[in-house]
Design a protein around this nucleic acid. Structure first.
Length: 834
RNA sequence: GCCAUGGUGGCGGAAUGGUAUACGCGCGCGACUCAAAAUCGCGUUCCCGUAAGGGAUUGAGGGUUCAAGUCCCUCCCAUGGCACCA
């Protein structure tokens, strides 16, 4: 009886069996030996899964399977980050309601995801756009509000004229909209903010204990941007007012020759002198037309105007001119900066341009002026000069003494400044979770009581890009608010940033109270609605046992947004008393990016490659293995399908190897392959070497070398005359994480019981890693001159003796004196001759 | 500019300071076939040589070492991130 390897039929068969057996459902009531792993959940676009999805999910699943075979109770859920702009844009274009298109996309995507054959526990699926989910997004807002972490403020925001929406700074980093590329403009708006900056230090400290890529931690540290320094108070000449500057280098304070204030600083209009009023107002008007992007990145050439006001130097009492310049930002520090041209390149440029004084106040050991571009080096070595009582003191020491003096005189204080800004969670969009706030007739905000959650997203809206929130046109929304709260009350029309939805979904996967998150059950049942019990985000015991996520896999592009927001939310929830851990993700791995001809694949560039044809032809197993075989998981690479044939052959050869045992009940199996090599029976060594290699490679996400180890093993086994059944079973187990469908088939073919993923991962015997003989390389003066084959138990002296007699080696030693001989056990002999 | 990561055959890539180029693709030759595909066998870093063997080689140049792709220094290039942060 001969079977053929038909991946399509074989994979469908096993996917069905897995589903029928409920093989991947995790029992969350018991967290012993748990392993919680998941990938960053996808946005359910209407497109088919692309190469990037497969590249991310296939290997991640292989890792999860490996952990299960290590005896861990693996929980690997999947969900959908389903709120967001694309569905809304699609609605504007086609009139299809975002809920309809999203639900359809989710269904399609589930079907496609299932084809990969991942061990997802679909019973725990989440969809952020369902009321079952977003009532918790709203609950989170209420908690933030209750604990004083949510507040409203007017602020200048980045506005995308095309998307008609506000963008966070990080969504408009190069001055264009992250989603559509339109240049971002500047616009003031009332927004809800979450006070993430209160957690700056904790977010920084928590990084140390995380098993994350070092570069990601560095990025977060830079993003949070802690700097130590002090505020200095400057009294304004001729009035009662004073200004404060923040500086990290107060040691240069005697070098201050001017001070610069931001054009949007609230005190500026009252400080400016009558003579300078017109010039300053013109400057303010001019810079207010610039977006924050232009102010920060637009022209390197600094502009500014003299305000006519003077400040009193806190030490020398000298009059220091106050200038206004838009390179100083209101959003960082105090919005006022001291200018030290002698020791700062930017200040130097400014001083030269406007003819301001340049005064040196620190120097390096050679007596040269220090420009603070290498602060650590100079701060250690330099000295303060021409600075009154502080002259001659080392910089670091002087810095301390100057702050002490300022604090004693009430002219300043130590301060730690962070670059991190509060999180604007408001979005003027329809397709998001409504912010659960209502306004009384006087316009004061009030939280929507928890019993009214979910505070549902109205459905009677029009999808025309009008520039204001589409929710403003919902009659149902207004009527609902007035009915519940009274005449003249109005709802908050903004919805929440989708980063809010994704900041706690790892907890929603752990929901055990039977809240079905299935796409088809978007409407809450009446009984659920009537139930006025407080919402439980996650059962405390389940959270305690299953958090944190042991392995989180996703793109590096989320290093400074999602991955900081999620950490902040977890920390806040811990402080509120709802969870016991403060960090959500214990270990993090970033998959690499698959490019096409060097460019990142994107729909807008039209260079997205669909894997469908390849999967149809070769099957999921082969395609997954091919993606893994391309190179290290964390490095990605440029797409090419030229090598898939090699994996195809590999799968077929494996299948053939197992096929020969079909009709043979005996333990030993005759290999009928043409490749039989009579010379040696080294299969056990090869097997145990492969076990060792694969066991080390998979948890390190080195799937490429794990697969090549398996190929090498296959090359050996194909040359064996007889293969015993247990060897084949071990091979099936080794293959199980990498090609799950084929592995189950092979497992069945060689008489295995149950599913292969439920088997214990094989262990290797160190004694079997070496064979009877070993090959030793022989070098003379560092050059390879030959190699010798010796028994594995040979002594050092014997090996060196044999090496020196090797024909070619002897040639190079002859007539010389041996100055040194080095033996590296099991590897090489090196002769150094004179 | 700063930080991070990387640069190895025709290609993807492998290599605890110890035989560089594993594994695979591609290519060449051969077997099977009427033929092709598929499959199998052999070969394949480059140069010289029939071969044995020799020489060169991990972006460039120095250094440490018996021994460097790997460690150190100076550059060059690529990718990612940050960037008027006071």
């Amino acid at each position: 009886m001969s079977r053929t390897y038909d991946p399509k039929a074989l994979e469908a068969k096993w996917q069905k069996r897995w589903e029928e057996a409920g093989l991947y459902a995790a029992d969350l009531s018991d967290g012993s030996d748990k392993y919680y792993t998941h990938v960053m959940f996808p946005y359910p676009s209407g497109d088919k899964l692309h190469i990037g999805h497969w590249y991310n999910y296939g290997p991640s699943d292989s890792f999860a399977r490996f952990m299960r075979m290590q005896g861990k109770k693996v929980f690997s859920p999947m969900g959908f980050d389903a709120f967001g702009l694309p569905a809304e844009n699609y609605a504007v274009k086609t009139g299809v309601h975002p809920d309809t298109s999203t639900r359809k996309n989710v269904e399609t995507m589930i079907t496609q995801l299932k084809r990969i054959g991942c061990m997802y526990d679909w019973s725990k699926m989440v969809n952020t756009s369902t009321p079952e989910y977003y009532r918790f997004t709203q609950w989170l807002f209420l908690q933030m509000h209750k604990h004083g972490l949510a507040y409203k403020k007017a602020g200048n925001v980045n506005w995308c004229p095309s998307c008609q929406t506000v963008l966070a700074n990080e969504q408009a980093q190069d001055g264009t909209c992250e989603r559509c590329g339109t240049p971002v403009i500047h616009k003031p708006l009332e927004q809800w903010y979450w006070n993430i900056t209160r957690y700056s230090q904790q977010l920084l400290d928590g990084l140390d204990a995380l098993d994350w890529p070092e570069k990601t931690k560095i990025m977060q540290r830079n993003w949070i941007g802690r700097s130590e320094g002090c505020d200095v108070v400057w009294s304004v000449t001729g009035c009662d007012m004073s200004l404060e500057t923040f500086t990290t280098t107060v040691d240069t304070i005697y070098g201050v020759t001017f001070v610069v204030i931001a054009p949007d600083h609230p005190l500026l209009p009252t400080l400016v002198t009558p003579e300078q009023r017109d010039a300053v107002h013109a400057y303010i008007a001019q810079s207010s037309t610039k977006s924050e992007f232009d102010r920060q990145f637009g022209d390197k050439d600094k502009t500014g105007v003299c305000t006519g006001a003077f400040l009193k130097h806190p030490f020398t009492g000298m009059s220091i001119p106050l200038w206004v310049a838009d390179y100083v930002l209101m959003t960082y520090g105090t919005g006022v900066v001291m200018g030290v041209p002698a020791h700062d390149q930017r200040d130097m440029d400014f001083a030269k341009k406007y003819g301001l004084d340049i005064v040196q106040s620190i120097q390096n050991p050679e007596g040269e002026s220090i420009v603070y571009d290498n602060i650590d080096k100079y701060a250690v070595l330099g000295t303060i000069i021409d600075s009154g009582a502080f002259s001659g003191i080392a910089i670091l020491d002087g810095r301390k003494k100057i702050i002490d003096q300022l604090e004693r005189a009430g002219m300043g204080r130590r301060k730690i400044q962070y670059r991190l800004r509060d999180w604007c969670v408001s979005r003027q969009r329809y397709w998001g979770a409504p912010i659960p706030i209502v306004y009384d007739p006087k316009g004061n905000p009030h939280p929507v009581p928890e019993e009214h959650l979910p505070w549902t997203l109205p459905t009677d809206v029009e999808f025309n890009p009008t520039g204001e929130s589409p929710l403003k046109h919902s009659n149902e929304f207004k009527e609902r608010t007035e009915k519940l709260f009274g005449k003249g009350w109005t709802p908050e029309y903004d919805t929440m940033d989708t980063f809010v939805c994704s900041s706690f979904y790892y907890l929603m996967y752990l929901q055990t109270q039977g809240a079905s998150m299935k796409a088809e059950s978007c409407q809450l049942s009446a009984s659920q609605k009537k139930n006025n019990q407080p919402l439980t985000l996650v059962h405390p015991e389940v959270e305690k046992q299953w958090m944190p996520v042991d392995m989180y896999i996703g793109g590096a592009e989320h290093a400074c947004m999602h991955l900081i927001y999620a950490r902040f939310v977890m920390m806040a929830l811990k402080d509120f008393g709802y969870v016991s851990h403060s960090e959500p993700f214990k270990k993090l791995v970033h998959q690499g990016v698959i490019t096409n001809k060097g460019a990142k694949m994107s729909k807008s560039k039209g260079n997205v490659v669909s894997p469908d044809a390849l999967v149809d032809r070769h099957g999921s197993d082969v395609f997954r293995m091919y993606l893994m075989f391309m190179g290290p998981f964390t490095e990605g690479g440029d797409w090419s399908d030229t090598g898939i044939k090699g994996i195809d052959r590999f799968a077929l050869r494996l299948f053939k190897l197992f096929e020969i045992i079909q009709d043979q009940p005996s333990q030993k199996t005759k290999n009928t392959s043409t490749k039989i090599d009579q010379s040696k029976g080294s299969s056990q060594t090869a097997l145990h070497r492969a076990i060792k290699k694969i066991t080390e490679d998979i948890p390190a996400f080195r799937f490429n070398t794990a697969i090549s180890a398996l190929m090498e093993l296959l090359n050996v086994l194909e040359r064996e005359q007889e293969i015993d059944r247990s060897t084949l079973q071990t091979v099936a187990k080794l293959l199980a994480p990498l090609a799950p469908h084929l592995a189950d088939e092979l497992w069945e073919m060689c008489g295995g019981e149950g599913f292969v993923v439920d088997q214990r991962w094989p262990s290797f015997d160190p004694a079997l890693l070496t064979s009877d003989t070993m090959t030793i390389a022989v070098q003379v003066n560092g050059k390879l001159r030959g190699s010798i084959e010796v028994p594995s138990d040979s002594s050092k002296d014997d090996i060196i003796a044999t090496a020196s007699k090797q024909e070619n080696v002897a040639k190079f030693i002859a007539g010389t004196s041996i100055a040194k001989q080095i033996y590296v056990p099991g590897k090489l002999v090196s002769f150094v001759v004179g």
